[in-house]
């Protein structure tokens, strides 16, 4: 079985994010990029399937600072090939990366067709593009998102569980090849010790493919700012009745009632 995993880097929100001078993008000064958590889950699920059914796992990622570390780590975890799509200047939102990666897939030697494409079902910077559905559409493959469990049955049939509200999970049957947007893998991503990553760095290679980013983007960010968040909680005072009413209002406002 041939599996393709699409992953990308996103800003690490542990670091305080700052707005750049243009007022509409992220400052690079203290920006730290990390792998999109759900993409990491997708990789793990792909590796679990590989262990179960043999086959190969290829990882494709748009170029970004520190992506090499992530790709070597993917090799150390058990991926067979890692490919970096170059030519991108990452900005906020992901239409650019999404379109570029989707378009570049056909130029990766010997990649297509694959049996399964896994990627995170969402990333925190997916303002204007979601790579899973786009790739599915372009390749004419079916797509299911928010998947938390996936297996492949003989005869090229996939089975997956998709999250619905309230802990309910929908059980789906998939014709392969298909694109699956992963929320969580069967188990959390495995740990790879630094020693193994180092070994992958010396023995593994990252292939590169030149991507051609789209000229114009469909969405223009005119302003970026930190939302006004209070340092501390907004204290609700008054009589018990008033407080309770106010709490109800807040919950209702968030669609929680």
């Amino acid at each position: 079985m041939k599996t393709l995993v699409l992953l990308k880097m996103v800003p690490d929100v542990v670091e305080e994010l700052e707005v750049a001078g243009d007022g509409a993008s992220l400052s690079r000064d203290f920006l730290r990029l990390i792998i999109n958590e759900r993409d990491e889950n997708a990789l793990e699920q792909a590796l679990i399937l590989k262990e179960r059914h043999q086959g190969t796992v290829t990882v494709v990622a748009p170029d970004a600072p520190e992506v090499d570390d992530v790709l070597y780590t993917a090799l150390a975890r058990g991926a067979d090939r890692v490919v970096k799509v170059t030519g991108l200047e990452e900005g906020v939102g992901s239409a650019e990366a999404t379109v570029t990666v989707a378009a570049a897939l056909s130029s990766v030697a010997g990649l297509l067709p694959v049996d399964l494409i896994l990627t995170g079902c969402q990333a925190i910077d997916d303002l204007d593009g979601l790579v899973g559905p786009l790739v599915a559409h372009q390749l004419g493959l079916p797509y299911v998102g928010i998947v938390t469990g996936l297996d492949v049955h003989p005869g090229g049939m996939g089975r997956c569980l998709r999250e619905y509200p309230g802990g309910v999970r929908g059980s789906f049957e998939l014709d392969l090849p298909a694109v699956v947007g992963i929320q969580g893998a069967e188990k959390p991503p495995r740990y790879v010790p630094i020693a193994k990553v180092r070994a992958a760095m010396t023995s593994g290679t990252i292939e590169t493919v030149a991507g051609s980013p789209p000229g114009a983007l469909p969405l223009r960010v005119v302003e970026m700012k930190k939302p006004e968040v209070a340092e501390r909680a907004e204290m609700i005072a008054g009589g018990l009745d008033d407080i309770a009413s106010r709490v109800c209002e807040i919950l209702a406002g968030r669609g929680l009632l």
């Binding site: 929100v13 925190i124 469909p218 960010v221």
Partner: peptide
């Protein structure tokens, strides 16, 4: 013009579809 919350709610953007 849309107001969106990105980066896990750490940033707010105003964005205009072209």
């Amino acid at each position: 013009e849309a107001r969106c919350l990105v980066f896990g709610g750490k940033m707010e953007v105003r964005a205009v579809p072209e």
